[in-house]
Lab assay of single mutants.
Amino acid sequence: WIARINAAVRAYGLNYSTFINGLKKAGIELDRKILADMAVRDPQAFEQVVNKVKEALQV
C-alpha cells in the first residue's frame, strides 16, 4: 500500500511521509489500504484528497 500511495502522490509533487503528515494536519482519517485503492480506482477523488493535504501543508 505504501508503494502505491508513494507513486501516486509523487505525481502531485509530494512524497509519502509528507502526504501522511498532511493527512493528519488536514484531519483526514482514511487508512492506507483505502488510500491505495482510491489512487488506482478513483483518481479524481484521490486528487481531491491530495489537494486538501496540500492546503493543510500550505504547499
Rank of each mutant, 00 (worst) to 15 (best):
I28Y: 09
G13F: 03
D42T: 10
D37S: 06
L23W: 03
A3S: 09
F19C: 01
R32N: 15
L23Y: 06
P43C: 05
V53F: 01
R10M: 10
V40Y: 15
Q58R: 14
L30V: 11
G13C: 06
L23V: 07
K24I: 12
A56N: 07
R41M: 13
I2G: 01
I5Q: 00
K24N: 08
L23F: 05
A26M: 07
V40L: 08
E47S: 09
I2M: 04
D42A: 08
E29V: 14
N6T: 15
R4T: 15
P43R: 09
A56C: 06
A45N: 10
E55M: 11
V9P: 00
K52L: 10
A11C: 05
V49Q: 03
V40Q: 10
T18S: 11
R41D: 14
L35A: 05
K54M: 11
A3N: 08
I5C: 01
V40M: 09
D37V: 08
N51R: 09
G13T: 01
I5M: 04
T18R: 13
I5P: 00
S17G: 05
A3V: 05
A7W: 06
A8Q: 03
E29T: 14
Y12Q: 03
S17C: 15
I20W: 10
R4C: 12
N6G: 09
W1Q: 15
I2N: 02
I28W: 05
D31S: 13
Y16H: 03
V40G: 13
L14M: 11
N15D: 06
L14Q: 01
A7G: 04
K33M: 14
K25H: 11
Y12A: 03
A36T: 03
A39P: 07
Y16K: 01
G22K: 01
D37H: 14
I2S: 00
P43T: 06
N51Y: 15
G22P: 01
W1T: 15
M38D: 02
K24M: 11
A8I: 03
K52A: 09
R10S: 12
A39K: 02
F46E: 00
A3C: 15
D42S: 11
A45E: 10
L57W: 06
A7L: 07
F46P: 00
V49I: 14
A26C: 05
K33L: 07
V50R: 01
V9S: 02
V53T: 04
A45W: 12
A7V: 08
Q58L: 11
I2H: 02
N6F: 03
A45Q: 12
